[in-house]
Amino acid sequence: MENVAVLIVGAGPAGLTTAACLTHLSILYVIVEREDCSVSLWSNHAYDRLKLYLTKELLDNLLVMEEKFIFGDLSRHGITMSKMGPMILKSKTGRSSVIDVGTVGLIKKASSK
């Protein structure tokens, strides 16, 4: 395992929020979760009155905008982004795309030399 500054125990709402803040600050972290999904409290309906009211279309648009903001245009490095957002991509193809922040950083660094 690489050297990390923070270990986040649990991929629930607090763990994911912490991860987002650490990512924004460029602090390395690892999330460990005992369940097979993130935000398992919502997924397993532990909160019977809590609903996430974001439509897939809306959520996909937000995720695509965030992806562009974080990574920029990667096409000059040979990495093309899907035209579909991750939620639609998963529902249509059964696949999901994964972008490794560290790998993207190394690709950009190597290309700038």
Rank of each mutant, 00 (worst) to 15 (best):
M1D: 12
E2K: 13
A5Y: 03
V6T: 13
G10H: 03
A11T: 04
G12Q: 06
G12P: 09
P13Q: 08
A14S: 11
L16W: 00
A19R: 02
A20W: 13
A20C: 10
H24D: 14
H24F: 10
S26L: 10
S26A: 14
I27P: 08
I27T: 15
L28V: 09
Y29I: 02
V30C: 07
V30F: 05
E33H: 06
E33V: 06
R34A: 09
C37D: 02
C37F: 02
V39W: 13
L41V: 03
S43N: 14
N44P: 00
A46G: 10
D48F: 11
D48Y: 12
D48G: 15
D48W: 13
K51Y: 10
Y53A: 10
Y53G: 12
Y53L: 13
Y53S: 11
L54M: 08
K56H: 13
L58E: 15
L58R: 10
L59G: 08
L59V: 06
N61R: 14
N61Q: 15
L63V: 15
L63K: 09
M65A: 15
G72F: 04
G72Q: 00
G72Y: 03
L74H: 03
H77P: 07
I79Q: 02
I79M: 02
M81I: 11
S82T: 14
S82I: 03
K83H: 13
M84P: 03
G85H: 03
G85A: 07
M87Y: 08
L89I: 06
K90W: 06
K90G: 09
K90S: 14
K92E: 14
T93P: 01
R95H: 13
S96D: 05
V98P: 06
D100C: 13
D100W: 11
V101N: 12
V101E: 10
V101A: 12
T103P: 00
T103R: 05
V104S: 09
L106E: 15
I107N: 00
K108Y: 05
K109S: 14
A110M: 13
A110W: 10
A110Y: 13
A110F: 14
A110I: 08
S111Q: 06
S112I: 05
